[in-house]
């Protein structure tokens, strides 16, 4: 089976600093892959390279954009990547703070709608229909993420957990085939995390979306991921099923530090 996202020997340098070194990673359709590793290991950098915020120094990433098209991602702008069907959330929540929750999700619909300047000014029938449909779709998404009651509230007024969920809802509005989640459970309490877990499972089942997940909460990772990839100092140090990774000595060393006496 061809992978949905196929990353080959991806390398990223910042000046003299190598943030990622020859990373290989594959995500298959409808699969959930977790990316774990200590802080500063380069996980978010990898997200930034995939989504076009950074341009990788070397290597490539290919994406199955549907209809058998295999598109190299390197050199694309973030909005082009999103249009292909990859969307992300941010580690430090980046919502459009002064816009309402519903409008945040509507922004996600932007790349799946067409209305232009003329449509906006003349309020053509097509533009109005499209706008109504987009609003209805967005509202459905909010409902799915338990945010319907907050639809008209400014995003920055939502409670923290709700903001995290709104980020996922906004990303889902772009109709991604691959969803990148950057520490979605960061700062959540155990109950909120369980709720999030349930939502992601539901998402996977209903939408069939593949997920690449960065997370430090190991319970969440172990329960969601079918495949785990461990990075440290910009290199991939281990990979496999949750069971394999859990018992891998290199992983334990990276997490617990080297024991000098050993």
């Amino acid at each position: 089976m061809t992978p949905l996202l196929d990353i080959r020997r991806l390398t990223m340098d910042f000046g003299g600093l190598r943030a990622l070194e020859a990373i290989d990673l594959a995500v298959h359709p409808a699969q959930t892959v977790a990316l774990i590793g200590p802080n500063g290991a380069g996980k978010t950098t990898l997200f930034n390279c995939i989504t076009g915020i950074y341009r990788a120094t070397a290597g490539d990433a290919r994406f199955q954009a549907g209809e058998g098209r295999c598109v190299p991602l390197r050199g694309l702008k973030p909005n082009q990547v999103t249009a292909l069907g990859i969307c992300r959330t941010f580690q430090n929540i980046r919502l459009f703070g002064h816009m309402s929750a519903l409008e945040n999700v509507l922004i996600g619909r932007h790349c799946r709608t067409r209305a232009g300047i003329a449509g906006a000014i003349l309020r053509s029938r097509r533009a109005r229909d499209e706008e109504r449909r987009a609003a209805a779709d967005s509202f459905r998404l909010l409902k799915k993420f338990g945010l319907a009651g907050h639809a008209d509230a400014p995003a920055n007024s939502l409670p923290y957990g709700a903001q995290r969920r709104l980020e996922i809802a906004r990303a889902m509005a772009t109709e991604p085939r691959l969803l990148l989640l950057d520490e979605p459970a960061a700062g959540m309490n155990p109950q909120e995390t369980r709720e999030l877990n349930r939502m992601i499972v539901q998402l996977r089942e209903e939408e069939g979306v593949a997920i690449l997940l960065i997370e430090h909460d190991m319970r969440l990772v172990m329960s969601l991921a079918q495949h785990i990839c461990v990075v440290d100092y910009g290199r991939k140090i281990a990979e496999g099923t949750p069971g394999q990774v859990r018992n891998n000595p290199a992983v334990i060393k990276a997490y617990l530090g080297e024991d000098d006496n050993a």
Binding site: P78, F90, R94, L95, F96, I107, H110, C111
Partner: peptide, 11 residues
């Protein structure tokens, strides 16, 4: 509101 996020959301 946020240029980077806007672009990442497909704008």
């Amino acid at each position: 509101e946020d240029e980077t996020a806007a672009q990442a959301m497909g704008i």
